[in-house]
Design a protein around this nucleic acid. Sequence first.
DNA 1: CTAGAACTTAAAGTTAAATTCAAGTCAAGC
DNA 2: GCTTGACTTGAATTTAACTTTAAGTTCTAG
Lengths: 148, 148
Amino acid sequence: MTIGEVAARAGLQPSAIRFYEKAGLLTQPARNGGRRVYQTEVLHQLSIICFAKELGFSLEEISILLKEFPENAKASPRWNQLATTKIQEMNSIVTKATAVRNMLESVLRCHCTKLEDCAERLNNSGKRARLRQVSQKAERGPFPTKQT
Amino acid sequence: MTIGEVAARAGLQPSAIRFYEKAGLLTQPARNGGRRVYQTEVLHQLSIICFAKELGFSLEEISILLKEFPENAKASPRWNQLATTKIQEMNSIVTKATAVRNMLESVLRCHCTKLEDCAERLNNSGKRARLRQVSQKAERGPFPTKQT
DNA sequence: CTAGAACTTAAAGTTAAATTCAAGTCAAGC
DNA sequence: GCTTGACTTGAATTTAACTTTAAGTTCTAG
């Protein structure tokens, strides 16, 4: 497959794929006359990358998770550290996302007049577990909003 | 309170508070000799902003949620639309974050040799709900990772 | 009264994750 | 043989959310 085909199938831009390659998330593919030639396996790798990205993993983190994946969990302290941190973050995300969903649902259903009241209640129960700062375009953010 | 006091109490930089003001998330405070003078209420507003930010809401979205909060839920189509979209995003986040957590936990515990296999299983069960693209510094991403 | 801390603004810089651009190469069809 | 579309590279630009800087003002302590 050419890079254009891979991009189309993965729902990405060719430039993104080159970018991932340069960032070390993808291994260098074979070349034919200078052009990249991909195996179908790359689609699988890209789906993993996209999945992690959607959850707010930075490319650097994905790189660590992919490249240092331990044969034996004890082998890579860096991998273990990141995984442990990420587990905590995932738990935090679940807690907060659930709280926000409940808040929005209750506001859509009832006729509150003070968003602040709801937010405060939530805020007091779910303190301090920061999500990554998403700086995305509408289509790109780390969270599912717009994904700028 | 001065901006410095507010910042210290809210755990933010004064520059962030000025930035939020310019972005329309905070109303213009009173001035004393050109300097901003805040009421304690601003701390409450900032806590709401920070909470939403942690969940991956962009400042623009927060602005909509705050400024168009409906007296009556039917009053603002834009608000309703955003809230509905966000509820879906929150559900998607919960699903994905749970899957990732389970994957990382199982990998930490067992001795898998193929991260890809786990990821594929997960990916197939939780398709397509994009989180916002987080483009933060290590400390600034929209997701909870590093929050620089 | 004055030194210095804390404030003011506007403008420029930072970071991540790409995209876009410029200039050029290659391969397929006519 | 040439045009065209897809590709190549590296460099510059983009966006969000701030921070930093520069140049100047004001409040406070001594």
